[in-house]
Simulated assay, not measured.
Amino acid sequence: MTAVEIILCFLAISNLMFLLNLGLPHSLFAFGVKYFYTDLGCKFGQIFMRSSRVMVISQTCLLSCFQGVTLASTNPMWAGLKIKMQKYILLIIMFLWCLSITSSISSALYPVVSINGTELKYTFNAGYCLSVYPSKYLFELIGFISFARDGTFVVLMATASIYILVVLLKHRNQMKGKRSSDHSQDTTAELQAAKMVVTLVTIYVLLFGIENTIYFYQISLAKEANSALNDTRYYLSFYFSTAFPFILIAFNQKIKYKIRCT
């Protein structure tokens, strides 16, 4: 397996974890089934959901950065970085997984199944589970730290994707004067992977922008918990993980060949 395929494999696992930890309890709750019966179960569910979401963000960022370094590897400095990333790709992924879990521990501190009271000011309400923060300070602090962490990954992946787009445009301009037979010879796996990465990142950045606008409103302006806003955010998060396999199939020639054979 190439380094890109390894990243895609772990990214697929992270997306599956996120879909199960986010989609399963929400779907069951929508049909009137109580997924969590204890506060402890609610805490574990929240930390798994939050950490798997960060895994998806960080590994999408890693994928775009690695693809950008691959396209820039004609430069000796970037070629050396590419070799090091290929050599330690599993360690990098494991580090990102550990970072995702440790940075999401705060999400396990305050979830409960239910609470007495009508005015819940500093609360995220998922319906089956409530995250009740003891003060406005903690509510905003944890929210802004999470926003800054996710925003850093998104800025990195967007920067790498802009570079990939520039390379793809240059490549297309170079191909304009060539025959169609030359086009097929010059279309490499790296360019197909680059197009896939740009598509993934574009969708993610758009969804992230809308989702985090809602999140920023919740932690800074909203005066009470609103389950409709939470549902909208969860739906936007859910969409990327749902679209991921279809984008992968559309751009990955190996998977297309296997599906045709099947």
Rank of each mutant, 00 (worst) to 15 (best):
G127L: 06
L207S: 02
T188I: 02
N15F: 13
F246A: 13
K254F: 11
Y110N: 08
I255N: 03
F240C: 05
F124A: 07
N116Y: 03
R179N: 14
M85Q: 05
V56Q: 01
V132T: 03
D150N: 14
I142F: 14
C98Y: 10
F31M: 14
V4S: 13
T74C: 05
F66E: 04
S58C: 05
A126P: 04
S73H: 02
L63C: 04
L63V: 00
P25D: 08
I115S: 07
Q185A: 02
H183V: 15
T102N: 02
S103Y: 04
K87G: 04
V154Y: 02
E119V: 13
I249A: 10
K170I: 05
Q174H: 08
G127I: 09
T2E: 13
F244K: 06
M49C: 11
T123Q: 07
S103T: 14
P25G: 05
F244I: 11
I210L: 15
I93S: 07
L99C: 11
N212M: 11
I92D: 04
V167E: 14
C129S: 08
K176I: 11
C61M: 15
V201A: 09
Y204D: 12
I164P: 03
F36V: 06
I259S: 00
S103M: 07
F238W: 10
I115L: 09
S161N: 07
K176L: 13
V205C: 14
T213L: 15
G41N: 04
M55K: 01
S146Y: 10
K195E: 11
Q218D: 14
P25K: 00
N75P: 01
V56I: 10
K176M: 12
P245A: 03
Q174V: 09
S51P: 08
R179V: 13
F66Y: 15
N116M: 06
I89P: 07
I214D: 01
L71F: 04
T102R: 00
I89Q: 08
G68A: 12
Q185C: 04
T118L: 05
Y215Q: 07
F139C: 03
E211A: 15
A194S: 15
W97N: 07
I101F: 15
R233W: 01
S104N: 06
R50I: 10
S184Q: 14
K195N: 13
M175V: 01
M94H: 08
I219V: 15
A189I: 15
T70F: 03
G209S: 11
M1C: 10
L40D: 01
